[in-house]
Design a protein around this nucleic acid. Structure first.
Lengths: 144, 144
DNA sequence: GTTTGTGCAAACTGTTTGCAACTTC
DNA sequence: GAAGTTGCAAACAGTTTGCACAAAC
């Protein structure tokens, strides 16, 4: 079987065996602009006969290997996205549920402040913004 | 039965009937410096014969009423804390697991930036810091 | 041929729900 | 006494695990 070379080489680099469920899983996550749940991925992968258990097993191995990030928005399930070098956070639209990347972040300064004032060593931070996305904002203003 | 007047009046203010599980639940959360899970609360309340289901029911009603905040740190369960007017975030120590309130926050500015640049209306934000707390930092430095 | 991954079914864990009995107001 | 709350048991949803077979290297 011949797979998309991009994902094959990612898998090889991490000493993972190359299988259809894994290649497709990476392809799906890479193609999606948003973090996806195991269920989201299963919607597509089940067409190839792939089981949810297999998806969960790959997801957790890939997170462990640093290939994926696991994200928790406080709703029913965890979501996963490809890990990159970019530093960003997530904005969730209250209206449409869309998840948007936010690149603005002034946290180096804030982390240093916390370290100085309280003495805690800050190693990482996650921010979740909630509100109304630009598209839903304009829909609302037209409706009125 | 006679209960701590503080929690009785909170319940009355929100039109909740005053019962032992509810008064004690508020008392436990108020007494704890940290957000607690339903299980944590059950550890104490089960001594009075209170069921986990009752705790979950009260927690979700209280969250809905704005009395409590529900917090998700991405581990197995949700945590709850009394809602206050203070604005703060959470720091989780990687070593001891302690949850510490962080009052520093420069987000009004950042939120305005996001609104200006991307057009999303930011209504709220949650930040989770992770690292090593001041106590664990000093233990580590002594150990070396 | 050894190691690793897979599908299937069953288990597990945090949370929710149906219901009849019981409290609160 | 009407409305809301409780304990118990059973259900539920997302996730994990045991196992025998199969694919990757």
């Amino acid at each position: 079987m011949t797979y998309n070379e991009k994902y094959v080489s990612i898998l090889r680099q991490h000493d993972f065996k190359v299988t259809l469920p894994r290649v497709k899983l990476l392809e799906i996550l890479d193609g999606s602009g948003e973090p996806l749940s195991a269920f989201d991925i299963h919607k597509t992968l089940s067409k190839h006969g792939t089981d949810l258990a297999t998806i969960y097993r790959s997801l957790s191995k890939f997170v462990e290997a640093g290939l994926l990030n696991k994200i928790d928005f406080g709703d029913e399930f965890s979501r996963y996205e490809l890990a990159t070098n970019e530093h960003y956070h997530h904005f969730i639209c209250n209206e449409c549920g869309k998840v948007i990347k936010i690149h603005q972040c002034n946290f180096d300064k804030l982390s240093k402040d916390i370290e100085k004032v309280a003495g805690h060593k800050v190693l990482s931070h996650e921010i979740i913004f909630r509100g109304i996305c630009n598209e839903c904002v304009s829909v609302a203003s037209v409706a009125h």
